[in-house]
Amino acid sequence: MDTRKLIEAYHLAWTSGDFATARNCLADDLDCRGSMDTFTKADDFIAALTQFRQMVQSVELLQYFYDKTGAALLYEIAIRPLPRGVIRTAEFFTVTGDRISAIRLVFNATALRQAMQA
């Protein structure tokens, strides 16, 4: 699978709640670093993503960039119940073979913590 198809499949899967497909896009030893957490196993990351998805009202993809070994997505996540807020997120991917091997998530952690407490 080419990089663009892999990243699009992953993004569509997690945003629609299809975590089996999302997990299948990830390398077992995924290196994921975000503004709040770090994961070194895909299964641990998917467990956290599954919990987070319960808060998500919608995801709007704003911009994207793909090349042979990576990608970058910029999107906004509306947190439920509205109007808890919108979290703008940049997600950077590294692809090795036919799996996502690394993810870097950049977002305003303070805004997310506030939305989680509301």
Rank of each mutant, 00 (worst) to 15 (best):
A27C: 03
A27F: 07
D29K: 07
D29L: 11
L30E: 03
L30S: 10
D31W: 04
C32Y: 03
R33M: 12
R33P: 05
G34V: 07
G34D: 10
G34K: 01
S35E: 03
S35C: 03
S35G: 01
M36T: 00
D37M: 08
T38W: 00
T38H: 07
T40F: 11
T40A: 12
T40G: 12
T40H: 13
K41P: 09
K41S: 07
K41Q: 09
A42M: 01
D43N: 09
F45S: 06
F45N: 04
I46K: 09
A47E: 12
A48Q: 10
A48R: 06
A48L: 02
A48N: 02
T50A: 13
T50H: 11
Q51V: 14
Q51I: 13
F52V: 08
F52M: 00
F52K: 06
Q54S: 03
Q54R: 10
Q54E: 08
Q54F: 00
M55Q: 12
M55T: 11
V56T: 01
V56C: 01
Q57R: 14
Q57N: 14
Q57C: 14
S58M: 09
S58R: 13
S58A: 13
V59F: 04
E60D: 15
E60S: 15
E60V: 01
L61C: 10
L62S: 11
Q63S: 14
Q63V: 06
Q63L: 12
Y64W: 15
Y66M: 06
Y66L: 02
Y66V: 09
D67N: 15
T69R: 13
G70L: 04
G70S: 06
G70Q: 08
A72P: 11
L73R: 10
L73D: 10
L73Y: 05
L73C: 08
L74N: 00
L74E: 08
L74P: 07
Y75D: 02
E76Y: 09
I77E: 07
I77Y: 07
I77W: 06
A78H: 13
A78G: 15
I79Y: 04
I79R: 07
I79S: 05
R80W: 09
R80H: 14
R80N: 15
R80A: 15
R80P: 05
R80G: 13
P81Q: 03
P81M: 01
L82S: 14
L82I: 13
R84A: 05
R84F: 10
R84C: 02
G85Q: 09
G85R: 07
V86G: 10
V86F: 02
V86L: 00
V86H: 00
I87K: 09
I87F: 01
I87W: 06
R88G: 00
R88A: 12
T89S: 11
T89I: 06
T89E: 08
T89A: 07
T89P: 00
A90M: 12
F93H: 03
V95E: 03
T96Q: 14
T96C: 13
G97C: 09
G97K: 03
G97R: 00
G97T: 09
D98P: 09
D98T: 11
R99T: 08
R99N: 02
S101M: 11
A102F: 03
A102V: 03
A102R: 05
I103W: 03
I103H: 02
R104M: 05
R104E: 04
R104G: 04
L105F: 02
L105K: 10
V106R: 08
F107E: 01
F107L: 04
F107V: 08
N108I: 00
T110A: 14
T110G: 13
T110N: 12
